[in-house]
């Protein structure tokens, strides 16, 4: 596997695809073994995470608090299956640790904790916390005229939390071009579709109105994600909002776009079928 610190130059999207496949399989195994988790959201976010960690961000897992590192904030902190898998795959901790997911005293809580786990920037879980913290990180970079970028991944239902819109105002006001928000737009929240609950559309116009540059992409297309996320922010003069259109449960037929898999857990038969499909 390529070192994350030195991503391959050739055919990088296919390498990201291989990593994404590994993450889907490993995270689903974690959920199956723990009989807990949020696999639907793990799968909608997987391609975004794989692209960031294996194609975009600069970091050194052996020096996880390097002041020059790019930061990633996992605002949808419940999707730890995918997040822990990508962190392990990137080298922050041994892949073997993933077998402890949700166990008593495990470092791998249901929601990430920076005090236990290298690579976690802030403790999340309650929704609407990631973007405001990422905003603060980006402001620190702006004050210092530093080169690092700050990425934050939110769900879409999560945008119903008002704290996001406070941060959206200040991000636009301060023209924080070093800040990138990625919205995992799978259109499903815990109980129903976002548009049937508290509708978000037109989501792109909302962010533009707050002073952000908006890109709308297929959130499962690594080449599209790579293009918008690795473009230099210098001179853009605005924070970037990437609306990544995704599907909850992406990759497994019976989970695809199915709200039941927000925090559903698989039976043995379902697990085995998923593993046959995730190849």
């Amino acid at each position: 596997m390529p070192s994350p610190a030195a991503p391959l130059k050739n055919n990088i999207a296919s390498d990201i695809a291989a990593q994404a496949l590994w993450i889907r399989r490993r995270s689903f195994q974690m959920v199956y073994e723990a009989q807990q988790g949020h696999p639907g959201g793990d799968f909608s976010a997987t391609d975004i995470l794989a692209t960031l960690y294996f194609g975009v961000m600069r970091y050194d897992p052996k020096n996880p608090t390097d002041p020059k590192r790019d930061r990633f904030v996992m605002s949808k902190g419940h999707c730890t299956g995918a997040f822990y898998s990508v962190l392990a795959r990137a080298g922050y901790f041994p892949e073997a640790d993933l077998t402890t997911y949700m166990e008593p005293l495990s470092k791998l809580n249901g929601h990430p904790n920076r005090n236990y786990l290298p690579g976690v920037e802030t403790n999340t879980g309650p929704l609407g916390h990631g973007l405001p913290v990422a905003l603060g990180i980006a402001i620190a970079g702006q004050i210092d005229n530093a080169d690092f970028r700050t990425f934050v991944l939110t769900g879409d239902g999560e945008l119903q939390e008002g704290s996001n819109w406070e941060a959206a105002l200040t991000g636009g006001h301060r023209k924080l071009e070093n800040l990138t928000l990625i919205i995992d737009r799978n259109r499903l929240q815990q109980g129903a579709r976002t548009e049937e609950t508290a509708s978000l559309d037109p989501l792109d116009d909302k962010w533009r109105a707050f002073g952000w540059h908006v890109e709308v992409v297929d959130g499962h297309d690594h080449a599209q994600l790579l293009k918008v996320l690795s473009a230099s922010p210098k001179g853009r003069g605005k924070p970037l909002c990437v609306i990544a259109n995704t599907f909850k449960g992406k990759g497994v037929s019976f989970m695809h776009d199915n709200v039941a898999w927000h925090h559903g857990v698989p039976t043995k038969e379902q697990y085995e079928q998923a593993m046959r499909e995730l190849v």
Partner: peptide, 22 residues
Amino acid sequence: VNVGIAEQTLVAVGAGLANGGK
């Protein structure tokens, strides 16, 4: 850093600034 009348972001930005070495 003045975040406007937005106390949730006020406190969260503090956490982010600390992450950035402030």
